[in-house]
């Protein structure tokens, strides 16, 4: 009865309900018919598909490309291993009792192992040039490296902006406001165009590394503001109590204020992480082949022309699921470590 009343309680409500149901009846059946009913799932090229249905055969045929880019087929197991090496400590840090140990592994061990696994060159692993990295694997790499680099940077900048030294404060504030005041795409272009100019002659930087540096600095500025918000949210009594116990000012900041500030900023950090993951698609404009870049490239394949709807729908679904997982992980972290009262 409650449901019926919520839908048809007043005349206006009833009207809205009827109109919306009519809209659904108009839109949803054709949509499902296109996506599932008359969709074609397998086929060698475009001719296998029909006009009335989605051509998922295109996605099927190019699936490895969407996930690995041009990473050599016989080396793809390394990407899987790298993901495993990343995910296990991540879950450990989130769920296990010894979160600190897992975090240390995540911060020090995982980047080294994953760099060796993905790039190779030692232990008999053939080198895979970063130009061949692509697809969702590239988005994930960009997101995790930039996130991992931006948290320490953000902590330094946040403390810098609160520093009693005017020079340190000025430099940190300028750094934060610059990166927050310009669009990500312009700074990616800056990395592409300006970085070669300001480096000594003969020094070249890998395209992927440039994007990573820019993404890290950019995210670091946003991270700094979130962490600064957390630092501001701590009651002054905490610092006073710690000082009264005879702690060095550095100890007060690092051992008393920072851990509490980080806990308080968990929701903000998760938001930054989700935004960062979505923003990694921008690298497709500066010549890297992330998932979006690979989709753009695949749409030009003469076997599969005119399938933009299918390509972008697939990419959107992948991003949607990934972002949803990140949000879920974030709310789990918040419940476990956050400062909001348990419900």
């Amino acid at each position: 009865m409650g449901l019926l009343r919520a839908l048809f309680g007043t005349k206006l409500n009833a009207l809205i309900t009827v109109l919306m149901l009519a809209g659904f009846a108009l839109v949803l059946p054709p949509l499902f018919g296109w996506a599932f009913g008359s969709a074609v799932w397998h086929g060698p090229n475009r001719k296998a598909c029909v006009d009335a249905g989605a051509c998922w055969a295109f996605i099927n045929a190019r699936m490895p490309l969407f996930f690995f880019g041009n990473y050599p087929a016989e080396e793809r197991w390394r990407v899987g291993c790298a993901l495993l090496v990343l995910v296990v400590p991540l879950l450990g840090a989130m769920a296990s009792r010894r979160a600190g140990l897992w975090l240390a592994i995540l911060g020090i061990g995982v980047p080294v192992i994953d760099a060796i696994l993905l790039y190779g060159g030692v232990f008999g692993l053939p080198v895979v040039a970063t130009a061949r990295w692509g697809g969702l694997m590239l988005n994930t790499t960009l997101c995790f490296v930039a996130l991992g680099g931006s948290i320490p940077l953000g902590i330094v900048l946040a403390f810098g902006r609160r520093s009693p030294y005017p020079v340190v404060r000025l430099v940190s504030t300028a750094m934060i406001e610059f990166w927050r005041g310009v669009p990500l795409l312009t700074v990616l272009f800056m990395g592409l165009i300006l970085l070669p100019m300001v480096l000594p002659d003969g020094v070249t930087v890998d395209n992927l590394v440039r994007a990573l540096v820019v993404l890290t600095l950019f995210t670091g500025a946003y991270m700094a503001e979130t962490i600064r918000g957390g630092l501001q949210g701590i009651q002054p009594g905490q610092a006073e109590a710690a000082a009264a116990l005879g702690m060095h000012p550095m100890q007060v900041q690092l051992l008393v204020l920072l851990p509490q500030a980080l806990r308080m900023s968990i929701p903000g950090i998760v938001n930054i992480a989700v935004d960062l993951f979505k923003d990694t698609t921008l690298v497709s404009i500066v010549g890297l082949f992330d998932l979006m870049g690979v989709v753009n490239q695949s749409l030009k394949d003469t076997d599969w022309l005119g399938l933009a709807t299918e390509g972008y729908t697939f990419a959107a679904t992948v991003f949607f699921v990934a972002c949803l997982l990140m949000s879920l992980g974030g709310s789990f972290l918040e419940r476990r470590f956050g400062t909001t009262p348990h419900r």
Binding site: K278, A308, Y312, A316, C323
Partner: peptide, 19 residues
């Protein structure tokens, strides 16, 4: 909210307006 902005722009351009 959970799909990239660039993807939405490119979708409107290539999948809606160009056809």
């Amino acid at each position: 909210r959970n799909t990239p902005q660039l993807l939405q722009i490119v979708f409107f351009y290539f999948a809606v307006l160009q056809v």
